[in-house]
C-alpha cells in the first residue's frame, strides 16, 4: 500500500480527476494549499506596502492505493496535470503502514479500494 500525495495547479483538477477515473482510481481527498517551487509567487500590494513572492494557490491530492495501482495513478496525474511549464507540481509516493475503513472495520488492502 502506498500513499500518493500530489501537488497540482488548481485549474488542472478537473483533468486530473478525469484521468484518474479512466484508470479506476475514484477515491481521493482534495485540499486547497499554498506553496512555492521554482515558479515564484507574485508581488502583492496593500496600501502601498509591497509583499514580494507571496505563496501560490495549489491543490493537494491524497490518494491511498494498492501496489498495482501506483504506476497507473502516477501516470494519470502526470497526464492530467502536465503543461510542461514550471509550476505543474510534484508527486510524492510514501509507504502506507495501515488503512482502516471506518464503516466496516476492514483493514489493509481490502479497505483501500472502492
Amino acid at each position: 500500500m502506498k500513499l500518493i500525495i500530489a501537488i497540482i495547479q488548481p485549474h488542472k483538477l478537473d483533468s486530473v480527476k478525469a484521468a484518474l477515473e479512466d484508470v479506476d482510481v475514484n477515491l481521493m481527498t482534495v485540499t486547497n494549499v499554498l506553496g512555492q517551487g521554482r515558479q515564484k509567487g507574485l508581488t502583492e500590494i496593500y496600501r502601498g506596502a509591497k509583499e514580494a513572492g507571496g505563496l501560490l494557490n495549489k491543490i493537494r491530492l491524497d490518494i491511498a492505493v494498492n501496489d498495482d495501482f501506483v504506476e497507473p495513478t502516477i501516470a494519470a496525474i502526470t497526464k492530467g496535470a502536465h503543461t510542461g511549464d514550471v509550476g505543474d507540481g510534484k508527486i510524492f509516493v510514501v509507504d502506507l503502514a495501515e488503512c482502516v475503513r471506518i464503516s466496516s472495520a476492514e483493514r489493509g488492502c481490502a479497505a483501500i479500494g472502492g
Binding site: L34, L42, E44, G54, N57
Partner: peptide, 13 residues
C-alpha cells in the same frame, strides 16, 4: 486579482 491588481481577496492561511 493577482496579475492585474496585485492583491488577493481571500487568505488561505
Amino acid at each position: 486579482d493577482l496579475t492585474q491588481q496585485s492583491e488577493a481577496a481571500y487568505t488561505v492561511i
